[in-house]
Design a protein around this nucleic acid. Structure first.
Lengths: 224, 224
DNA sequence: ACCTGAACACCGTTCAAGT
DNA sequence: ACCTGAACACCGTTCAAGT
């Protein structure tokens, strides 16, 4: 079929931009400067084009972000999974978590729900299967998945906020960072913990919380 | 002291606005239309004033939101707490969770960290004390608090996103809501759960996840 | 068919001026 | 002392026009 190799001749002005080029440029901006630096105007500027030219190739900013999400999903590594369901759960959630630590811009988009690109569904399937292998029913596995997902979203959200503040700490005066001073007689537990708060906050406790939550869910499955 | 009863005479134009009036009007807007409807311009309009007049009484939009947070904290009920630490944990977290379900605008602000008004510290203290009474060390209680806080933030974030979408479902076509269709042979667990997904998502599983996580944390305290 | 330019309807915040 | 009005530097997106 020699005809199918060469692109069909089309009338009109030839395209200088493409869907692929627009999404790739958007990804470069997000990776380098964060999602808040991604504006249609800046993206156009980087492509040597006008803002409105982009709308030929992507539906709008929302659609552009979904395309970025799908790209990110394809980059999650896919190692062989251990046979033990608990080990499998640990690995799967860590893959998801660590992937999102490097792409914090994706967290609010995913939390907004059901925007997972098809490229990440294998991981959700693996998690559900592992919960089932560990003894849960299908529906219990669904509830357990959502519980750990909520924990993960919250951890990533708080982590990102903390990292942003640490980044800006140089610029802004170090005011209101840390806990407010309290009277020990009024809030004894709070006051006792205050000296350790900063240190506890800086360390990564995701694995500990994940372990506790998964064990809790497997030991006392939700009655569903 | 008769002089202290009457306000001191001050030079200049008398104030028509006040800090209190501005914050109260802001709260009314947020309660009625959500936090995204709160703009300095709209707030000024509602007060029959110009946007810049507000800056006499509040430092700016950020400071205004922190004032709203402190108001919300004062509205959290303060019932007597049960003696049993597990029961106490359940009640305290439910108070916090339920209070935030009604004020979803507060969740992103709190997740951004350490903006709790002083009026909510009693609740954090009670949670830490309950973890300690249940057998954890102070530092373990801190880690446990953060884990459940993350779970709570995630649950509230996902819940709010879902409710927004349900609210907008009338307007927008019911596209992309729910899971993407998948081939059962590729993603068996995912495909098996798909029929139940919508129903599981609509129900409130916070109490179940909370129970599992707290039990997991008390049974296997983080090694710290 | 593809791209451009001007415009719309917004934001938070500054600055200088009025009362 | 308090408030106003115009302006700055942005946003995503529409619309009509150019090539």
């Amino acid at each position: 079929m020699p005809g199918s190799a060469s692109p069909p001749r089309r009338p009109g002005r030839p395209a200088r931009l493409s869907h692929e080029a627009v999404v790739a440029a958007a990804e470069a901006i997000v990776a380098a400067e964060g999602v808040e630096a991604l504006t249609m105007r800046r993206l156009a500027e980087r492509l040597g084009s006008s803002p409105m030219a982009l709308y030929r190739h992507v539906g709008g900013k929302d659609e552009l972000l979904v395309a970025l999400l799908e790209r990110a999903a394809r980059e999650v590594p896919r190692p062989p999974l251990p046979a033990d369901p608990r080990e499998r759960l640990r690995l799967c959630w860590t893959l998801l978590h660590d992937g999102l630590v490097e792409r914090p811009w994706a967290v609010p988009l995913l939390a907004a729900g059901d925007r997972q690109g098809p490229s990440i569904l294998w991981l959700i399937d693996a998690i559900l299967a592992a919960f089932i292998d560990a003894g849960l029913s299908e529906r219990q596995a669904g509830v357990a998945y959502r519980a750990v997902w909520h924990f993960t979203v919250g951890e990533l959200t708080v982590r990102d906020a903390l990292e942003r503040r640490n980044r800006e700490a140089g610029r802004t005066p170090r005011a209101l960072v840390g806990l407010p001073p309290v009277r020990a007689e009024e809030l004894p537990a709070f006051a006792a913990l205050a000296p350790h708060w900063q240190e506890l906050r800086e360390r990564d406790w995701y694995a500990d919380g994940l372990h506790a939550l998964v064990e809790g869910l497997l030991t006392r499955p939700p009655s569903v």
